[in-house]
Nucleic acid binder design. Structure first.
Lengths: 125, 125
DNA sequence: CTGTATCCTGCTGGATACTG
DNA sequence: CAGTATCCAGCAGGATACAG
């Protein structure tokens, strides 16, 4: 693959667009953050919840279920009391690492300043 | 790869998360595709519309305005008849190239197959 | 600890018609 | 050609309460 100077003119219009397809899989409140934090390794439900902070329980469950259905995250349930459930990236999920790291760096350098300028997020606590 | 084994424990929770911030800027119907197609160079409104195909005029205008407000896209208006408006990436927008290309490749390899399996998109036109 | 079940609201985005 | 203006439906996602 030589840098994709000329991508296949295979008409990436509409629903078949791979860029949109990728974005669709991360779209949903907190999915990006979830995947990013799971890069660190296996995490239990509440560990994840604590790291995300602002996400509600309902949403976290929902996003995790979607990520599981997409095959990006694996859910491991232990039959113990109190309940213990661990989440980790699948191989497919782990293949997102370079993208997630790139998004983080670009976010720090560009996205956060832009959003702050647009007053969409507080000026940093 | 020791890149980010331990990221700054600077609590990327909630709204200050750079990954989420980046994703927020692309979220919105077709934004990913728009940016991707503009990598090719300057495009007029209708050229862009033709490439995207499935996006309505209203949405395209809306997304372009948002991208412009974020400083990722530049809008050049020519005072002629019939009207002529060109769109191109700003430097900040162009800095997304590696991410967009990565999203495209990951999308072809993983996202599209996943979405097809979930029957969210037709089995290829 | 790890979830479901409801209820409810706002925003996203589609369809359509009109304009400089 | 390149928009703007309306109207409207659907669903994402918050708040809250309950459960194994």
């Amino acid at each position: 693959m030589d840098t994709v100077k000329k991508w296949r003119s295979k008409t990436y219009t509409g629903e078949g667009c791979p860029v949109e397809a990728s974005l669709e899989l991360f779209s949903g409140k907190g999915k990006g953050m979830i995947l990013y934090h799971l890069l660190e390794g296996t995490l239990r439900f509440n560990e994840l919840k604590r790291r995300l902070g602002s996400v509600t329980q309902r949403m976290l469950t929902k996003q995790l279920r979607e990520l599981e259905a997409s095959g990006l995250v694996h859910r491991q349930v232990y039959a113990v009391v109190p309940p213990k459930v661990e989440y980790r990236l699948t191989d497919t999920g782990a293949s997102l690492e370079p993208i997630l790291l790139a998004l983080k760096e670009w976010g720090e350098e560009h996205a956060l300043p832009i959003l702050r300028q647009q007053a969409k997020i507080p000026a940093e606590s």
